[in-house]
Write a protein that binds this DNA or RNA. Structure first.
Length: 576
RNA sequence: GCGCUGGUGGUCUAGUGGUAGGACAUGAGCUUCCCAAGCUCAUAGCCCGGGUUCAAUUCCCGGCCAGCGCACCA
């Protein structure tokens, strides 16, 4: 199955290994003419669904990203695996796991590699596979991010982004302004991501450079969720943790409301995006009989996620992850708020301003300065913290605070302590994020695999890609029945007219008519138009439907409208 | 990264220590004309490097790539 599909993909120009003229390198693919058109159409459909129709905004941020961003996001640490190889059997093991499993060391992942080597020597650890000693074997860090240098010389370290999401997070301070500080709002991006996979596999399914389409949807967790009535009729095939642990293949088929009511899905926005995702996958050609949402097992969750559902499609007997809908909580924005200079919060006004009592200090610095010298500033900060935390500490004559292990005692009258009423009109919150993140190449591959069929027409087998008309690389093939008696000229003219009307058109006059139909079947062209003698006389042509191979006559002047409606799903072939 | 298998026109393949044959596809011509028709002609190939040899696409070693399994990982 996947072999046939790869062969078709190569032969017909959907996708193929990149740089083959130089031997090629694993994990990189070029989309050929058909594939690039298909991919673009899939992306356009995604943009239509998750940007335009949701009222979200789209950005386009750099792929090269400076190191501090990933230090903040956690990718520098958490995308870095320590590997140690057995000298005897050659197995590679996660060095931190070997240490954690055999010593009382916890969180070995955060220990430097040379110390991990020392730990292995100290405890005389052995290969979990064959029992040979690992002492003296080098422990090597392997970070899945591609590293680069920004600028000349040593420059600044940078990385190719492993996800587009960080672009939405790092630019959040400006984006929230564009959203006029109103939650919820969503920011989307379609673009390349990079992961230096140890072992790229399965054509487009695990590559080192790949296109993702990600939506970061920022919400106030205390606000109401989406209007689920709009997706009330969508049935979600859910495969929750409990079902997986019971080793069952039983899926729950629930609407978003039911899934929430029964506690299967925790978040309203997650439920909403699962429904929208399912609709979108169906729209671009994923077979709903080979589709499910699988909940991440606890140990499977990424470092930033509290809950995650994967959209999966079955290809060749394996389930392929197509999308992850993750609750990223406020992890990322909080991290960037800590590490970066700007503020990653949104001011949420209360319905009614609140009056609160607040304990504050206004220390007399002309006293603290001479008394504590260079530590005076920190003492003042400590007093402010203490006031907010425990106002009773200021009841006596003196107040004592601790800074870096040293105690400082200050007369209360010098602290400017007071309890005052303040009016609060709102609060600054760090929004939570719900993230539907799609692998575009995986969606394209799965749509191809699910569309690919071999059937029989008049006893002859034919390969056909039953891609939805909306995403098919070419919408219409135009053929002269024969290239003579003016049929060719008329057909070329018609092809040009249809292109002018915005349709993707292929012209073909080579070989007999049946062969030309089969060529278009193989690349998934949904409609073919043939110019015959009657067309010259009556001004009507035959339109042939890919899936049924049936034909009907349509007046030439109606053709641009009819074909456009067919492509956009505003009409069906049977209605013609 | 380890193991197994493989790498011959665009695609799929046969075969050989003396540089290769087929099928499909593609292009031209004739013919035919609404579902892969026929004939003629044409284009086009032994993954890369090293070794053995008079001679390597073939044998050996290494590499790269692919598929699968393991490991790793979204």
């Amino acid at each position: 199955m996947s072999e046939e599909l790869s062969e078709l993909a190569r032969r017909r120009g959907f996708f193929f290994q990149a740089n083959e003229a130089y031997g090629g390198v694993a994990g990189f693919y070029t989309y050929g003419p058909e594939g690039a058109a298909l991919k673009r159409n899939v992306e356009d459909a995604w943009r239509d669904r998750f940007v335009t129709r949701e009222g979200n905004m789209e950005i386009d941020s750099p792929t090269v990203t400076p190191e501090p961003v990933f230090r903040a996001s956690g990718h520098l640490d958490d995308f870095d695996d320590m590997l140690v190889e057995c000298p005897d059997c050659g197995e590679s093991h996660r060095a931190d796991h070997v240490v954690e499993d055999n010593t009382d060391v916890e969180d070995a992942e955060s220990v430097p590699t040379d110390e991990v080597e020392a730990l292995i020597a100290e405890h005389d650890l052995v290969c979990p596979e064959c029992g040979v000693s690992l002492v003296g074997q080098p422990v090597e860090g392997f970070n899945l991010m591609f590293e680069t240098t920004i600028g000349p010389g040593d420059g600044d370290p940078g990385y190719l982004r492993p996800e587009t999401a960080q672009g939405m997070f790092t630019e959040f301070p400006r984006l929230k302004e564009y959203a006029r500080n109103q939650l919820p709002f969503g920011v989307a991006q379609i673009g390349a991501g990079y992961r230096n996979e140890i072992s790229p596999r399965n054509a487009l399914l695990r590559t080192r450079e790949f296109t993702m389409a990600e939506l970061e949807f920022f919400v106030d967790p205390e606000d109401d969720g989406p209007n689920l009535d709009r997706v009330a009729d969508v049935e979600l095939p859910l495969y929750p943790v409990e079902a997986q642990q019971a080793d069952g293949e039983e899926y729950l088929r629930l609407t978003p409301q039911e899934a929430l009511a029964e506690g299967v899905v925790a978040g309203e926005w997650v439920a909403y995006f699962l429904a929208r995702s399912k609709q979108w996958f169906e729209r671009v050609g994923v077979d709903m009989d080979r589709f499910r949402f699988r909940q991440h097992l606890p140990g499977e969750l990424a470092h930033y996620a509290s809950d995650c559902w994967d959209a999966e499609g079955e290809v060749g007997g394996d389930w392929v992850e197509l999308e992850g809908v993750a609750s990223r909580t406020n992890y990322d924005l909080t991290k960037h708020d800590e590490h970066a200079d700007d503020s990653f919060t949104v001011f949420q006004a209360y319905d009614e301003p609140k009056t609160v009592e607040r304990a504050t200090v206004d220390p007399e610095m002309s006293y603290l300065g001479p008394e504590f010298g260079g530590d005076a500033g920190e003492v003042a900060d400590a007093l402010a913290d203490l006031a907010a935390r425990d106002r009773s500490a200021f009841d006596g004559e003196e107040v004592t605070v601790e800074v870096d292990g040293t105690e400082y005692t200050v007369p209360t009258e010098q602290t400017g302590f007071e309890v005052a009423e303040e009016t609060e009109s709102g609060r600054h919150i760090v929004p939570h994020v719900v993230e539907p993140a799609f692998g575009v190449g995986r969606a394209v591959y799965t749509a191809l695999a699910h569309s690919y069929e071999t059937d029989e027409v008049d006893g002859e087998s034919r390969d056909v890609l039953r891609l939805p008309a909306e995403v098919a690389p070419t919408t219409v093939g135009v053929f002269p029945l024969m290239d003579k008696d003016g049929l060719g000229e008329r057909a070329r003219e018609l092809a040009a007219d249809l292109r002018e009307a915005g349709l993707s058109v292929t012209y073909d006059d080579s070989g007999n008519i049946g062969r030309r139909y089969r060529r278009q079947d193989e690349v998934g062209t949904p409609y073919c138009v043939t110019v015959d003698y009657e067309a010259l006389e009556e001004g009507a042509v035959t339109v042939r439907d890919r899936d049924t191979t049936e034909q009907t006559r349509v007046p030439v002047e109606d053709l641009p409208t009819v074909l456009t409606r067919l492509r956009d799903g505003d009409a069906s072939f049977e209605e013609l």
